[in-house]
Nucleic acid binder design. Sequence first.
DNA 1: GTCTATACCATGATAGAC
DNA 2: GTCTATCATGGTATAGAC
Lengths: 201, 201
Amino acid sequence: MSKEPKLSFKQQQLIVRENAIIDSTNMLLAQKGYDLMTMDEVAADVGIAKASLYKHFPSKEALAAAAMIRLMENTLAFVRGLDAQQRPIDQLRGVLQWALEIRMKGGLPTLPSENTSLRDALMNNNRYINRLLDLNELMGELIEKARADGAIRKDLPAEVVLFTIYARSCDPTMDYLRMTGQYTDAQVTEFLLSTCFAGLQ
Amino acid sequence: MSKEPKLSFKQQQLIVRENAIIDSTNMLLAQKGYDLMTMDEVAADVGIAKASLYKHFPSKEALAAAAMIRLMENTLAFVRGLDAQQRPIDQLRGVLQWALEIRMKGGLPTLPSENTSLRDALMNNNRYINRLLDLNELMGELIEKARADGAIRKDLPAEVVLFTIYARSCDPTMDYLRMTGQYTDAQVTEFLLSTCFAGLQ
DNA sequence: GTCTATACCATGATAGAC
DNA sequence: GTCTATCATGGTATAGAC
């Protein structure tokens, strides 16, 4: 930590404001998805005019990308902070559990599932792609270790395991189970985790 | 079968035309999703003017609902035609395999996964809801039987099993695995089936 | 029932004053 | 940097001639 603050008060204000914008974006993206989210809504939720929004982010795509990148960085931080003493399979389980709990609270899934213009845009965003590659690498290592332990089936390519875990984080089963109103959020999470790792049989 | 055709030539033509419209709708819905699909595209794909499209279906919602209803009826027909000699668990597996193969060919998943205006609209469509309830009942019976056989875990509520199977039919893992280009469609299908029923462990 | 042409509106994006 | 006011685009839906 440097003693002298690098950022002026104005710059700090800017960051706070932009974080607030991304918070609103995050929530709206989770609620309505990229295509149905409008810049008017974001501006209204933040409490600023739409034109001001465009001073911070040059386009809707850039705004959504910023939200996805922040999410990806949070995910990376979580994975890097995992307890290395734990069994790799439990660490993997922990990642999925963390992602599901974020989504329960109104957050976004780690991977955009929809065939939307957002996915295309993200695939051309270097910063996002780099974070995603980093995450894939970390997760890939965990998967290899878990497989060496015999905790994960050896007949599945690592990619299949990886995507299956990612997919579970954006699985609509969560929404449908919650809609029945019969289970607590913790129970729903446990069902999703358990069926992902242990299957139905 | 009645010997005298109930439908005039003109009426038959109408049905053929409407089926063609639904075919195009189906393909475009699968490719782009509801929100990104435009009525211009549908009309262009069918080869008619947009205004003509509106003579057949009063709105975009109604058109998409018609496509989803036809899909649901096809699914019901498939499930009703299952070989009752097979083990219930294999019948369930067969349903998922069938759904995945449809999607591989460019068809729609049985359940709309996205948080889109389409899902809201469908939930208010009695005809669609009735078909969905019928399907849920048939699938629920299969699940109960499979559970009685010991082929499905008894600690999972039937709903969890049902939604987990539905979700796998619209799982983005399929898209991501195909994008790698490393596996045949049959292999991808097998991975999805296997991880759904047997899990990762 | 099909077409061309158009009304109407939502939304992403911008201009220009302060 | 924020605001109000506005533009431009593209989309659903419809009018009216044939």
